[in-house]
């Protein structure tokens, strides 16, 4: 086989190097993790024709096909052209030219999302629709960004471990006259969320400071006294990451912002990255970029030109808490002596 392969270039086209020399795994994007099921036959065809017959449900909800031989890559790229056209351009409205070279970039990673309100009873937003809108904003940027969209603060999408975690919120509104004082919402809020509801004069009062926007009160209320404000709101977490050195959970950046704000903020990411990386799109977790620039600079750049909605809340500072493998002072050898090694 050919032992002279530009694996960096291949990687940029979404082919990941295998431990088997000359083999690659293709990672096809599925923004928001939802596509029509008919595309699965396409996946099967690739796996059976050019791959090793296996299919991996990618960690970031990509459709991953391992075992593709280097020489077959051009054929595969020709074959997936239509998929890229249909998903990226037709469905998400991404502004790109679809060629026979396969995916043009890997920087902006596949946008993950939980199933959201197209199915889930707890969801507050249509995560799929938002993921597709975001895809249009971030792709095919060469700058690295990991986004995950969750339908509710339960964050099944693990937005807390992404550069940006976007969480759908319900702004629940209370109709005094419809309330029968049954306390079911108080119980639900205390059990599932932050316990911000209490009873006064047979009716409910909410400590709006700490409502997490989960919508549990609206779900449980028997009379429809609590309902969702039909406007969708979002929480944006930043700087979460996994990794070998300093994994950490993302922290609250914006609360109660509208979709428009979310899309504008994400749009500013490319300029911010370019500034911090001096226009060299290298692979670094978003959190490291924020660390390099400092939160204040990040905030300034990412909110540039963004018209915040009146309900919006913005973090004044961020207290990161990394897992620091380099210090490890909380971890001690079992019997007081570090094993040789």
């Amino acid at each position: 086989m050919n032992h002279d392969l530009d694996i960096k270039k291949l990687r940029n086209h979404c082919y990941r190097q295998s431990k088997v020399p000359g083999e690659f795994m293709l990672q096809m994007r599925a923004p928001g993790g939802v596509i029509e099921a008919r595309y699965l036959s396409l996946v099967q065809h690739i796996a059976d024709t050019w791959g090793n017959g296996l299919f991996h449900l990618g960690m970031r909800q990509t459709l991953s096909i391992p075992g593709i031989k280097y020489e077959d890559i051009p054929a595969v790229n020709r074959y997936i052209k239509q998929y890229i056209q249909e998903i990226e351009v037709d469905l998400c409205g991404v502004d790109m030219e679809v060629t026979e070279e396969g995916y043009p970039a890997i920087g902006a990673r596949n946008i993950m999302a939980c199933i959201g309100n197209i199915h889930c009873i707890k969801a507050n937003i249509n995560t799929t629709a938002l993921a597709r809108k975001l895809e249009r904003v971030i792709y095919p940027s060469p700058y690295h960004i990991k986004i995950s969209v969750a339908g509710c603060p339960n964050d099944c999408a693990k937005g807390h471990f992404n550069d940006f975690g976007i969480i759908g919120l319900a702004k629940t509104e209370y109709d005094y006259d419809r309330c029968i004082g049954c306390k079911k919402c108080i119980e639900a809020c205390a059990k599932h969320a932050t316990g911000v509801l209490s009873m006064e004069n047979g009716k409910i009062v909410k400590d709006t400071c700490c409502c997490v926007g989960c919508g549990e009160c609206a779900l449980v209320c028997p009379t429809g006294a609590w309902t969702r404000n039909p406007t969708k709101f979002y929480r944006v977490l930043i700087g979460g990451r996994t990794g070998k050195q300093t994994p950490r959970m993302g922290k609250l950046f914006l609360n109660w912002v509208t979709e428009e704000v979310v899309l504008r903020v994400i749009k500013n990411w490319e300029d911010f990255s370019a500034e911090v990386l001096e226009h060299k799109p290298v692979y670094l977790h978003g959190g490291h970029l924020i660390d390099r620039a400092g939160y204040n600079r990040f905030k300034e750049m990412i909110l540039k030109g963004v018209q915040l909605n009146p309900e919006a809340m913005v973090a004044q500072r961020i207290l990161w808490t990394e897992t620091e493998y380099r210090s490890n002072f909380n971890v001690r050898p079992v019997n007081g002596v570090r094993a040789e090694g």
């Binding site: 309100n117 009873i121 969801a123 507050n124 937003i125 249509n126 339908g151 759908g168 319900a170 919508g215 609206a218 779900l219 429809g224 309902t227 969702r228 404000n229 039909p230």
Partner: peptide, 8 residues
């Protein structure tokens, strides 16, 4: 509109 038990 949009005020049902479940979102949307």
């Amino acid at each position: 509109a949009g005020r049902g038990r479940y979102s949307d």
